[in-house]
Design a protein around this nucleic acid. Structure first.
Lengths: 216, 216
DNA sequence: GATTCTGCCTAACGTTTGTTAGATGGCAAG
DNA sequence: CTTGCCATCTAACAAACGTTAGGCAGAATC
């Protein structure tokens, strides 16, 4: 209820409108993640944002426009998170470090940092076809990022040479995103889960060939 | 429209009611898979089943009851498919064959055989909490089956001894189910996809250690 | 042949949905 | 002090939803 002080000058972009808009998006992202797309009414969003349903139309043209914005921000957030984490790796980093880092960053965004990212994963399969189409480009950009990351790593000999990269990406992203449905922080944090996943994907399930490698 | 002949005798269980009921379930499973839970109205189901919306209530007490039945049958189908395929393996089968077989059977049920299985994966995250609870036991039974399968294999030395089995199951099932969102038969059949997944999970992404193993 | 049961239809109920139009109060500019 | 914009409210709309009550034709039963 506390109104922010106005500087009386051209801070229009920071004024109430932009704040409300952000608040609406935040609330909607959280509700969509919790209850799905069709399960959340505009009245519910408005109530939690402290306004009436009709007022949402001052900021957005429709429920579909609202959700597209959330979907796109969700992908952009996880994309940026992974890219930054990978970018911070030392230049000589090996394939395993690369994989661990990317997996951890993706899971962090999904499970801890961003309601937008988790909302995206949760509701992408529920929205009308037309909306899905509109949010495809951002999604494909993230897919392409992974494909290039894996291709470059394989090119430098950091990954198994005969790995099918598209399938690898699909398995990996699919498994990571699925964790949203069952992950409970109480059973061990995101770091622990990321570690297990990376172990599994890196080394596989086959028993170590021959006698012990002497490394552990 | 063609009415089945009646034997005039106690074939009550096979009479029109049971047929209609099955037809409704089939139609509903397909529609739920295609359009989600909230996206499919009882009127739409009734229309494709060749009756009026109100008539559904002769066979089911509510939309929730209808969906619970579909969810349970979906899991039971995939559970049975995997168990049978694994059961047909020769007694001396190795860990890799076990994994390949289970993965293939799961994907077959999901992507080719059963609308019930795919509907389950697709809408489980969309249904009201109360409904989810009701269909939990069947789901947990399938989870338990996998856990036991993996545990026994590891116990017999067929899998890496330090693999975390719960995480393995969650990664695997998550990745398999996620394929429902993007799989296109035109890009290579279920068998091909299953093969790629099994390769990846079995051998991992790490480049083969040292010089060639001489096996390929 | 009368009665009962079966499977479905018609018609409506109350609620909720996304969306729109018009009014309103506060603040800034002139 | 007046004008005008900005952000929100109120109130309503038509459509769609799950669900229910009562009727009705045909087959089965007595």
């Amino acid at each position: 209820m506390a109104r922010p002080e106005r500087t009386t000058e051209a801070t229009k972009a920071e004024s109430g409108a932009a704040e409300s808009r952000r608040r609406i998006l935040d609330v909607a992202a959280r509700l969509f993640r919790e209850q799905g797309y069709a399960g959340v009414s505009l009245r519910a969003i408005a109530a939690e944002a402290g306004m009436q349903a009709g007022s949402l139309y001052y900021h957005f043209d429709s429920k579909e426009d609202l959700v597209v914005e959330i979907l796109d921000e969700g992908i952009r957030t996880v994309h940026q998170g992974v890219a930054e984490a990978v970018g911070r790796l030392p230049t000589g980093a090996g394939g395993e470090a690369l994989l661990r880092t990317a997996i951890l960053a993706h899971l962090r965004s999904l499970l801890r940092l961003s309601d937008y990212s988790s909302a995206n994963v949760r509701i992408f399969g529920q929205i009308p076809e037309a909306v899905r189409q509109r949010s495809l480009p951002v999604r494909q950009a993230y897919d392409r990022y992974w494909d290039e990351l894996l291709a470059e790593a394989r090119g430098r000999g950091l990954l198994r040479a005969d790995a099918d990269l598209r399938t690898t990406r699909l398995l990996l992203i699919g498994a990571l995103n699925a964790s949203l449905e069952w992950f409970e922080p109480a059973r061990g944090g995101v770091e622990r889960l990321a570690g297990h996943y990376a172990d599994l994907i890196w080394r596989g399930l086959a028993p170590a060939a021959g006698p012990a490698t002497g490394r552990e």
